[in-house]
Amino acid sequence: MKPHATLQEGVDALMRDYDGQVPGASVLVLRDGKPVVRRSYGLADLASATAASPVTNYRLASVSKQFTAASILLLAQDGRLRLDDPVRRWLPTLPDAAAAVTIRHLLTHTSGLVDYEDVMDPASQVQVHDADVLHLLETQDRTYFTPGSDYRYSNSGYALLSLIVERASGQRYARFLHDRIFQPLGMDGTVAYEAGVSEVAHRAYGYSFEQGRWQRTDQSTTSAVLGDGGIYSSIDDLARWDAALYDERLLRNESLQAAFTPATKTDDPDVQYGYGWRITGETLWHSGETIGFRNVIVRYPKQHVTVIVLTNRDDPEPYALAKQIAGLALKD
């Protein structure tokens, strides 16, 4: 008991700014598949004073990308698509400039496709969806660079991947995720959230510190795009996801290895990118930043340790915090 108690105390000290009547956080440390820290702090909803808990579902933002990549890999395993398929095989309305773009380029942020956020109508308050991203890109007969020649992080690419999942599977993207990933793994609270279609149980709402106080900033005009960031999940459900990344209950070993193998350098010399995962040495990780939420998952597969930090506030980024927690867990 003592080592875990000491680890818990260390994590509590690191998380003290999230405790109390403020937007909170949920923290999970897994060692050998077992939770050695499973703890929540602060509030999931300030208006109702609802405390955060291990079943609180936070908007994952770009942590969602690993699920989009896994969906593509599942369909590749099914023989429904190939990673080297031209994207225009599945989305033929894309302009000529996208002719050389492949699914693999989308997975690895090497497509050069224009960022949809940069061509949205800044005056519009209407939320865009994945299909709207395609319509925006249909108007852009250009790329930032020759596809495959460089790296530029691309939310556009992951929105298009969700549409490819729909075309190749014949299912709505949210339904595919439910049927092929969330339900089989027992991730019963996890959902690709669609307003008016689905609900988020135990939902955390996002906040930003503005004009001296926390204000709800839960949704933006891009929050309804699913493929690049629209999944809600909890630390308890993500523990089930993490477990499935160590065996073949979901993805075959060759698919997992492909996802976890560096495919491209990034704009950070210490970081490479696989399929939905950043890779720093032997560490696999991904952060997620969106209005009102900051999250990270950091995996140390050789040590069989994972740290997950989910927060419903706009600041700070929790990657450094997760690495500090990991340092305690790996030393413990």
Rank of each mutant, 00 (worst) to 15 (best):
L81M: 08
L83V: 15
L83R: 13
D84L: 14
D85I: 12
P86E: 14
P86K: 09
P86C: 05
P86D: 07
P86T: 06
V87H: 07
R88W: 05
R88G: 10
R88D: 09
R88Q: 10
R89P: 02
R89M: 14
W90T: 12
L91E: 01
P92A: 08
P92I: 07
T93V: 13
L94C: 02
L94V: 06
L94S: 03
L94W: 04
L94A: 03
P95Q: 04
D96Y: 07
D96I: 11
A97L: 03
A97E: 12
A99F: 05
A100V: 10
V101K: 06
T102N: 05
L106Q: 10
L107S: 03
T108P: 06
T108N: 12
T108I: 11
T108R: 12
H109G: 06
H109A: 03
H109E: 04
S111Q: 06
G112H: 08
L113V: 14
V114F: 10
D115L: 14
D115P: 15
Y116E: 01
D118L: 14
D118C: 09
D118A: 15
D118E: 15
V119L: 04
V119S: 02
V119G: 03
D121P: 05
D121M: 01
D121G: 00
S124M: 05
S124D: 09
S124Y: 00
S124I: 00
V126L: 13
V126P: 02
V126F: 09
V128R: 02
H129T: 14
D130K: 07
D130S: 08
V133G: 00
V133F: 01
L134Q: 12
H135F: 12
L136D: 02
L137N: 09
L137H: 07
E138R: 06
E138P: 04
Q140E: 04
Q140V: 04
R142V: 09
R142H: 12
T143R: 14
F145H: 02
T146N: 07
P147A: 12
G148A: 09
G148Y: 07
S149T: 15
S149P: 08
Y151N: 08
Y151R: 13
R152E: 14
R152H: 14
Y153L: 05
Y153C: 03
Y153V: 06
S154V: 09
N155S: 12
N155E: 12
S156I: 04
G157E: 11
G157Y: 08
Y158H: 13
Y158P: 13
Y158F: 14
Y158D: 11
A159E: 02
A159G: 10
L160S: 06
S162I: 09
S162L: 11
L163P: 11
L163D: 01
L163W: 03
R167M: 05
R167E: 11
A168D: 07
A168C: 07
A168N: 07
S169L: 10
S169Q: 08
G170T: 09
R172H: 11
R172A: 11
F176E: 08
F176T: 07
F176H: 06
L177A: 02
H178V: 06
H178S: 14
H178Y: 08
D179A: 15
R180I: 01
I181F: 04
Q183G: 11
Q183E: 13
P184C: 04
P184V: 01
L185S: 07
M187Q: 00
D188T: 15
D188S: 14
G189F: 01
G189E: 15
V191D: 02
V191M: 05
V191L: 05
V191W: 00
A192N: 00
E199Q: 14
V200H: 00
A201H: 04
